[in-house]
């Protein structure tokens, strides 16, 4: 059943949806929900709200399926609709106060620190670099996310973020510049950690 959908374009899939094909609709959900979930975290960290909004958006898409026109990319359409819904929900959430959320202390035992360092170095990245993302503004990160994680075109990103395309170019350009500067700053520290790491291996092997 799903193989039929896999080779279909978004436009064709939506034609199935218009014919009340729930499988086609759920195929679109399966394909897109991961992107929505990650992107949503650029807007809010309230995961319950994110899940509610996903549910709400897909329910509404289904209800309005006859009116919706998918020209090329369903992904773009759903991201844009979803963002609107999420912002609305975030606003509304201030009216609904969450009572105590049952907290359970269910943390997994921490891996030993050595394992983490090893893993990070073998991946060619470190905590220090990860932190450099924090030098970017929320909007900058949202732009990078949409452009590079979701692979949306500049035009689409600009529309979702409600800015002009040149502004977006500028925003991304500046963000990457900041990240590149951080790489330079940290490359010295990075080498130091590498050294300690190599020393550590040496030490462990011979003692």
């Amino acid at each position: 059943m799903n193989q039929k959908f896999e080779n279909s374009t978004d436009k064709e899939l939506w034609e199935y949806v218009k014919l009340n094909n729930e499988d086609a609709f759920m195929f679109l959900y399966d394909n897109r929900v991961d992107d929505l979930y990650r992107y949503a975290q650029r807007i809010t960290q309230n995961f319950d709200l994110i899940e509610d909004s996903i549910q709400e958006v897909f329910t509404r898409l289904w209800e309005n399926r006859q009116k919706i026109i998918i020209t090329e990319s369903f992904k773009f359409y759903v991201l844009r609709t979803f963002k609107r819904e999420l912002l609305l929900q975030v606003k509304k959430a201030s009216k609904i106060t969450l009572l105590e959320k049952t907290s359970c202390s269910m943390s997994i035992a921490n891996n030993s620190e050595a394992v983490i360092i090893e893993d990070e170095i073998s991946n060619g990245k470190m905590d220090l670099l990860r932190r450099s993302m924090e030098h970017l503004s929320k909007r900058q990160r949202e732009a990078l996310h949409l452009r590079y994680i979701d692979s949306m075109s500049y035009e689409e990103v600009a529309e979702i973020m409600n800015i002009q395309v040149p502004t977006l170019y500028n925003m991304i350009f500046r963000a990457i510049k900041i990240l590149k500067q951080d790489f330079k700053k940290y490359s010295f520290k990075y080498k130091m950690v590498m050294l300690i790491y190599i020393f550590d291996i040496f030490f462990n092997n011979f003692c």
Binding site: D34, R38, Q41, L129, L179, K180, F183
Partner: peptide, 16 residues
């Protein structure tokens, strides 16, 4: 560097 940027960008968010 480019790879790190992409990975960090993605890892800032939790997968579903």
């Amino acid at each position: 560097e480019a790879k790190t940027i992409l990975e960090n960008l993605r890892e800032e968010t939790v997968p579903l």
